[in-house]
Each structure stands twice: as structure tokens, then as C-alpha cells.
Nucleic acid binder design. Sequence first.
DNA 1: CGGGACATTGATTAAGATCAATTTAAGTGG
DNA 2: CCACTTAAATTGATCTTAATCAATGTCCCG
Lengths: 262, 262
Amino acid sequence: MNTAHTSAGGNEPQHQGPPGRHTSLPPLTPETCKLAVKGACLVSDLCQIKNGGSHPPFSAYAFSRRTLRRGEALYRAGDALLNLYQLYAGSVKLRITNLSGIEQIVSFPTTGALLGIDGIETGTYTCDAIALEDSVVCMIPFSELASSSCNDAKMALRLNRAIAHEASHYRHLLMTLACLNSEERVASFLMDISEKMAANGYSPRQFVLKMTREDIAHHLGMKLETVSRIFTRLQTAHVLDVRRRHLNIRDPDALRKIGAGQ
Amino acid sequence: MNTAHTSAGGNEPQHQGPPGRHTSLPPLTPETCKLAVKGACLVSDLCQIKNGGSHPPFSAYAFSRRTLRRGEALYRAGDALLNLYQLYAGSVKLRITNLSGIEQIVSFPTTGALLGIDGIETGTYTCDAIALEDSVVCMIPFSELASSSCNDAKMALRLNRAIAHEASHYRHLLMTLACLNSEERVASFLMDISEKMAANGYSPRQFVLKMTREDIAHHLGMKLETVSRIFTRLQTAHVLDVRRRHLNIRDPDALRKIGAGQ
DNA sequence: CGGGACATTGATTAAGATCAATTTAAGTGG
DNA sequence: CCACTTAAATTGATCTTAATCAATGTCCCG
């Protein structure tokens, strides 16, 4: 009954590096922000707000970036909330480990996602944010964001919505865990990824899973063997092809139906 | 596999009344707010902000209250977000019903809770809020709250935290559903209620469950028969006494241990 | 004092966990 | 560049938990 897994989770601390010793990129400007075109770049908007008002030119406010190696932690549960982060490239897992050592992956943020929201309630992060591949984030000092929200109603609403979106995401995952059986959960999970891929301009049919079977299992409240079995079952049913991390959705409609609980 | 329950959910539409036809109480003031003493009354704070500034006296801003009969809906999924509500007395269930008719109770707010946050992301509520007993809420026009947040950093942070708290709650429930077996889930659920009772000044050992076994089951992702069996099992183990909705926790430490996953 | 919602209990079945053994692929260092 | 090491994934056999189906009991309310 819940044998506290000693989280052998391979892709972790090897190249962790001491705190602070991480590659830093030149600051980001609205011009160089690749997300800006999609109207999804909080950083870029913050720059423009600063620039538009009676403030110094945005370059003084341009936000620094940080690169993460695979397995490296962006922040850990218990760290003080100093920054939010917008994910510019790569992907991350947000993990909670409870007292008994049982772990749960609460989300797999990808490009465009805002990270660190789990620290807003108490001022201390409650999750570990671990890079699933080499990634780039842009650092947004929370104080900066809070003061912007204060002067600008639009930015305030945007922050509110970002936090509310986080809640939404958990509500959705909750439904998945509470109402669906294992096969349906996996299907729903894959559909979610597929939609996110499409939203980011990639193929919704073919993609590479950045996380292990164990990560998926810890996300969906099941065992990794079950995830594996369900993949093969879906392959046998000609719904998808899976070879290791490479996924090819053969029958999106079928997958959608299964993920919705028939 | 997921036989879409036709939600016979007894305590519902009988005395629903047409929209708008509900008992209204006189407006609330900081003086009459029972929650204010605990520093938890958003309404009272809003009044004082208005009153403190160059605004009209708070009486012009005092917020109206509304009573709900058991089974009545405060709002429903799909309704436009106009107000947040602070729950002054009673208790509520927040329910999501998905396309296949499967339902999930995402929370059981009680006295002091802020309701309607599920509408902030999109401007449309995503849950049904159903009173579990006769209840009183105070209506907070969202526009009012948003503009207060704009002028007052403290209020802004408070709203942010309220939304973040919602996310926190779901994260916690997520852990419960994903990592614990049925017995542990029920124990965890009861401990949560116990703590909430204590926080509101009631006995953490003895209380009455306002919700049915089916509601609990729909909250914890299991079947009502299982909930019932686990209650009797915990009673047999001398952890608690349960007679219908009346609960008496005999061994809080044991219950806590079980709820934490041993 | 009924009627109906709510709750309990029992017998059986099915889904997923667990235990265990391979297989496959990806790095790593010689 | 290849052999070696190790992490990750697959597959099988068995066991446990909770779902399912069904009957009965109890209490609340009119």
C-alpha cells in the first residue's frame, strides 16, 4: 500500500551545479521575444508598460533569462518566491513530494507557460520545477509584476487569470483522476498534449514525449507498468503507434472519444 | 465502465424558485460582519477601503446578502461571472458535470470561503454551487473587487492569494486522489473537515456531515458503497464512531496517520 | 404512520497493483 | 567506434482492491 518510492528518478541531480552557477543569456527585449507574436508574452508586455509610462526605457527593465540543463531544478519546494518564470523553450515537470515520499507530477508545462504560481499563496514554492530537457526561462521578479498589476488593471486581470488558469488546470486533472479509468486517463493525457502541440504550431499527430513512463504514471495516479500496457493496448487497437518516446496518433477521433470517457 | 449516473441527487431542484426570486437580507456593514473579527472578511475590508479614501461613506458600498435554501444553486456552470460570494453561514458543494454526465464535487466550501473564483479565468462560472443546507452569502460585485485591487496593492495581493488558494486546494485534492487508497482518502477527507471545524471554532472531534455518501464518493473518486464500507471499517477499528451523518473521531492521531498514507 | 431518500451489507467480478524477468536503447569511457 | 553499464520500457503471472449488482435496513419528513 503506497510503498514510498525512493524516487530513483534518473534524470536529476547529476549536473545540478551549485545554486547561482547557471548559464545566463542576454536580457530579453520585446523585439527578441518569440512568444510576443502570439500575444502570450507577459515579459514583453511588462516591458511595454514600463516603456509607455513615465518610467526609464524598457531596456533598464528587460528581464534576464536562464538556461536549464535536463534534470536541473528551476526552483524547489520550500524556496522563497522571488520570481515567476515564463518558459521560452523546453519543458518542465512540476512535482510535489509528500511527507511519506510519495510523489505526484501536477503538470508538465511547455513553451509559453508561466511557472512559479504555486508560490503565490504563501510566498514559498510548493513544488519542484525540474527541466525535462534543456530549457530556457525568462525571469520575472514577482515584485515587479505585483507593482505593474497595481498600476494597470489589464495586467492585474492578466495575472489573476494566469493564477485562475492554474486552478482550472488542476480542476481538469482532478476530473480525469476521479472519473476516468486508466485507459481513459492516458487517452485524455495524450489529447491534452496533442492540443498543446497544435497551439504551439507543431503537429498534433506526431510528437516526442519528454517524460518517462514513470512521470506519466505519477501524473495520472497509476503505476508505470499500467501506462506501458495501455500504450501497447492502444497500439494494438490501431489508435496510435508508440515506439519508446515517439508517438504517432493514428486515429485522433477514437483517442478523443476514449479520453472523454466514451 | 463509468455508467453515467443520472444524478438522482435528491436535495436539488424542488424548492429552486425562479431566478431572482430569493430572500434578501439587509446589507452587511463592517459592524455586523461576524467574520471580520477573524480578519477574514473581504467584504468588510472592501467597505473600509472605500470609506477610508475619498469615496462616499461605506454604506453606499455595503454589499447585499442572499439566503439559499438547501439544494438551491447560488450559480451554475455557464452563468456569467458577475459576483464573487463570501459564505457567511452554511455550506455548499461545488460540482462539475462533464459532457458524459459524470459528476465530480471539487470542494465543499464552508463559512468564510470565497465562492465564484472558478469564473475568473473565462468570465463564466465552470461549476454549479449548490447549498448543502440553508446558507447565507454576501455578494461582492467582481467589478468592485477588481477596481479595489487596482488602487490597493494589499487588496490585489489578497485577491491573488484567494485565487492561488483555490489552486492549492485542488493540488491537495489531486495528491489525495492520485496517491492514496480509498481508506486513506476518506481519512484525509475527514481530517480536512476536522481542521476546518477547528479553524471556525467548532469541535474538531464531533461534527455533522452536511453531504451525502454519494457526494463524498463523487468528491473522492470512488463509489458510495465503498465510502460506507470504509466508515464501518474505521468504526470497527475504533478510529471513529459514525451514525448516519453524525461523526465522532475517537482517535484523531490514528486518523491523521491513515490520511497521510501511513 | 407511510413513503422515499439515504445508508448499509453481502456476493461476485473486474481493473489495476505487485512481483519478477527480460528486452531495448542510450550514454560513457576505453 | 565499440563494448560495457545502466536507465527505461515491456511483458507475464498472480494477488488485492474497489466496482458492480442486488437486497435490505433505517431514518426523516410530510
